[in-house]
Design a protein around this nucleic acid. Sequence first.
DNA 1: CGGTTTAATTCTACAATGTAGAATTACGAT
DNA 2: ATCGTAATTCTACATTGTAGAATTAAACCG
Lengths: 114, 114
Amino acid sequence: MAARPDLPGAFETLVMLAVARLGDTAYGMTVRRALEERTGHATSLGAVYSTLDRLETKGYVSSSESEGGDDRGGRAKRFFRLTAPGLRALNQGIEAVDKMREGVPGLPRPARAT
Amino acid sequence: MAARPDLPGAFETLVMLAVARLGDTAYGMTVRRALEERTGHATSLGAVYSTLDRLETKGYVSSSESEGGDDRGGRAKRFFRLTAPGLRALNQGIEAVDKMREGVPGLPRPARAT
DNA sequence: CGGTTTAATTCTACAATGTAGAATTACGAT
DNA sequence: ATCGTAATTCTACATTGTAGAATTAAACCG
């Protein structure tokens, strides 16, 4: 079984996690900020958006334009949400790493689930 | 700081973990087996070897031919070890994911460190 | 010795993901 | 209309992911 688990890539994983953690406030800018703040890894917006696009093509995230109501200038935001298949794929990737790192010395202690 | 953390890819991470966990018995075949047994994800030897090669180019693993002493037929084994920079990179990648997944609901519980 | 079996690695090729920067779109205000 | 601002889309190329075929080499056997 599970002939093609098709684990997400490293950056895809990070982006999906950012979307998941941001809840209903995930869009290009906030995703990038979350990534930078949490991981210290600076990335370009282009990187974030193309990854988001590819994830959407795979059905791992969905997107919707923001309704009017904001008074600020500038273009409308495109909000992203993690889909059920996206969550599943994310879990598979995380589980694979967790399984592999079990009992290996010299690795950081895993994060506590909240 | 850390302008270019250069996180390892998803499969690279899995391969490095396999090498780490196998200790001094890590070579192409055992790496593949460890991967399959632990993650359920089948991979080709070609995939494993080219990843191992690329990791060596980056200095994340080192390799050495097996000394004689085996009485089995077949070609000599090439054993791999994780280097210090490799462990560092591995840790950074794992930490990045751990940071991002902290407190996000719907994710699997992290593995217990042993 | 020369062929056969066995174990393992290397080579070749292409698809998918990673990544950045420039260009573009669209809105509100002047 | 045009300007500044906020955000997204486009274009392009480098790196990583992945498989399968080809190759290498040691031990064994007659």
